[in-house]
Design a protein around this nucleic acid. Structure first.
Length: 586
RNA sequence: GCCCCCGUAGUUCAAUGGAUAGAACAGAGCUCUUCUAAGGCUUUGAUGUAGGUUCGAUUCCUGCCGGGGGCACCA
């Protein structure tokens, strides 16, 4: 089964874990440096403790002397020596040396004792390694994906989903209580187009694709045929007032088919929503809120009710909240949604993931919310993802030039299948594996870059199975696991850990908890992606250069097995945060 | 015109104001009689432009050039 888990136990058996500290080393050092500043009577400066890019500069490094030296008018190099001197007096056995370098850096080298124990610590913490409780008790709600019934789920939704899902998990790993929410436009003119097309053409809806096709056809006719357009308006009214049996039935059927279809895709993406919010309810609610605050906050203008953002902040502009038909716009709905969410789940943090084309709207919206529900506005964070552009240009739903989520997953899956069929490896369920690899490849390509930026989506390049890619992580994990699987037979031969061989992997694996924290602070899942890719690469190099299972050298083997086991653990936990599937074999 | 976001190797992306700007793909050349070659090794190659702040700038500020988005009833 899970080789790396059973081995974790046997390894733990052998080394004493007297003091495997769960406190992150970085924070320890920061606290110590602050103390030294006090001791030396130096003012507080906003120094950093970071990992030097080059391991030869140490495991940690601080710029404190250069900053403090400047405010004091002292030579930074001399000050660094002075600070380092005090630090050395209380040097714990976690550190082997503290060295002062060039302009005034103080570099810290971790001791072998610390590094060896960190491996044990990883195995001991297991599936919890990397998590922390810094957000304990914080109720968090994350809204993402937001696919609309009656329409296709396209690759834009896939982006929102990948990013939102990872944020949801990042919050969880940092101790927050998290609920996932999905917001859906279940009523409106787009729905009426689909229903009108069905009624006009008499077409049968057997599945979500049929419904989406009606939407596409209905949209075309809506723009070209006046008669049809009038029909859509009529249907739209009937959908709202539920006065027509035939319309009701078609509406309910279309809604059911698409929502069920979405759920099937969410399962593939490993997403579970706790709450579903629908435009039909948020709209009414938002409208009432806007009316309650007119003319105090909102103003009537040309028959509509608007918010004059530019009067508050020159970077903002005027937006319509209720149009002249008396219908709430996106802004009013979102306002209502914020309150509805809070009433259901009194959150401390509310994350809303959307495409970046609505960034400007959201800023205005948040400014308005600040006047009505200041405490909610304070808690709301908008995270936007970029757009997925094709090398040839933009996607357009009008021309039918959309790439659907399902099509993309299947397309990638079939490519993976080709590779699997060609390989001689013995895999039981190739179809299941192919899907895991496909989903991993897609998610990786979205999460590897800073959220908010566009992705130029080149099919061959964006979804390569080589180099920096989802399959690379998965392959490394499967490979490690394969070694550990074989290592089971060696278990009995393991002896006490002697002098450890320490490599770059040892110097990287203990950092994972820091990465989890930073990915939250900087709102960047891509930091986890980069880190995992780095350690996977180190492992593959280690694997190529060393024989892990060497019967002639059981002592060394035991160390390497422990290291491999810890690597597998960190890869697994990291992929879990990203919601990238981690097959044991591939 | 005004407001936001963004310009890093040929390409796609990294880099909490720090040390020699990292990867991957593409190109050239190696590597399975050892545990998974979806791997590993070697090699070419980049901060749009002009200033400023700083001990130190891809990062902060200003101008310019280039790309994207937004600027009243679609989300």
């Amino acid at each position: 089964m899970r080789g790396y888990e059973s081995l974790a136990k046997s390894f733990l058996f052998q080394i004493s874990l007297s003091s495997v500290s769960l406190i992150i080393m970085k924070e320890k050092l920061e606290a110590q440096i602050k103390d030294v500043l006090n001791t030396l009577g130096l003012p507080e400066v906003s120094f950093v403790v970071e990992h030097p890019a080059d391991l030869s500069h140490g495991d940690y490094s601080t710029n404190v002397a250069m900053l403090a030296g400047k405010t004091q008018g002292v030579n930074p190099l001399e000050l660094a020596e002075k600070i380092a001197g005090v630090l050395r007096q209380n040097q714990s056995d976690s550190l082997s040396q503290i060295i002062v370098a060039k302009p005034g850096f103080i570099n810290f080298f971790l001791s072998n004792k610390f590094l060896v124990e960190s491996i044990g610590g990883i195995l001991k913490r297991g599936s919890k390694f990397g998590s922390n409780d810094s957000l304990a008790g914080q109720k968090t709600i994350v809204e993402y994906t937001d696919a609309n019934p009656f329409k296709e789920m396209h690759i834009g939704h896939l982006m929102s989903n990948a990013i939102g899902e990872s944020f949801s998990r990042i919050y969880k790993w940092n101790g927050a209580e998290v609920r996932n929410a999905c917001y859906q436009g279940d009523k409106g003119i787009h729905v009426a187009r689909a229903v009108a097309h069905k009624l006009k053409s008499g077409i049968e809806w057997r599945n979500a694709q049929d419904v989406a096709a009606s939407y596409a056809e209905g949209s075309k006719s809506y723009e070209t045929e006046e008669v049809f357009k009038a029909f859509v308006v009529e249907i739209n009214k009937k959908i709202y007032d539920e006065s027509d049996k035939e319309v009701n039935e078609a509406y309910m059927l279309g809604r059911k088919l698409t929502l069920e279809y979405f759920e099937a895709i969410y399962r593939k993406l490993d997403t579970k929503f706790d709450h579903y919010f629908f435009e039909s309810t948020t709209g009414e609610f938002g409208k009432a809120i806007v009316h309650d605050n007119t003319p105090k906050i909102f103003e009537e203008s040309e028959g509509a009710i608007v918010y004059h953002g530019e009067k508050r902040d020159p970077a903002l502009h005027t937006r319509v909240f209720i149009n002249k038909e008396g219908l709430p716009t996106y802004e009013a709905k979102e306002l209502g949604l914020a309150k509805i969410k809070y009433d259901i789940y009194p959150y401390d943090i509310s994350i809303v993931v959307t495409g970046n084309e609505i960034n400007e709207y959201f800023r205005v919206l948040l400014r308005a919310m600040k006047e009505i529900f200041p405490e909610l506005a304070e808690k709301t964070k908008h995270i936007s993802h970029g757009m997925l552009r094709l090398p040839t240009g933009k996607m357009s739903s009008r021309t039918g030039d959309v790439i659907t989520a399902e099509w993309l997953i299947n397309e990638v899956k079939s490519k993976v299948m080709e590779k699997l069929q060609a390989s001689e490896r013995n895999i039981e369920n190739k179809d299941e594996l192919a899907e895991m690899v496909a989903v991993g490849a897609i998610k990786y390509s979205i999460l590897k870059q800073t959220p908010g930026r566009d992705i130029i989506f080149d099919f061959d390049k964006s979804l390569s199975f080589e180099g920096d890619s989802g399959p690379y992580l998965q392959y490394s994990f499967a490979r490690a696991n394969s070694v550990l699987e074989r290592a089971k037979d060696l278990e009995a031969k393991l002896s006490k850990a002697g002098d450890m061989e320490i490599g770059e992997l040892h110097r990287m694996l203990y950092r994972f908890p820091e990465i989890v924290k930073r990915s939250l602070l900087e709102m960047s899942p891509n930091m986890i992606v980069t880190y995992l890719t780095e350690i996977a690469s180190m492992f593959n190099k280690f694997y190529a250069e060393n024989i892990i299972l060497d019967e002639k050298n059981p002592e060394l083997s035991s160390q390497r097995i422990a290291l491999t086991s810890a690597l597998a653990r960190v890869l697994k936990n990291g992929m879990d945060i990203l919601a990238i599937p981690s097959p044991l074999k591939m």
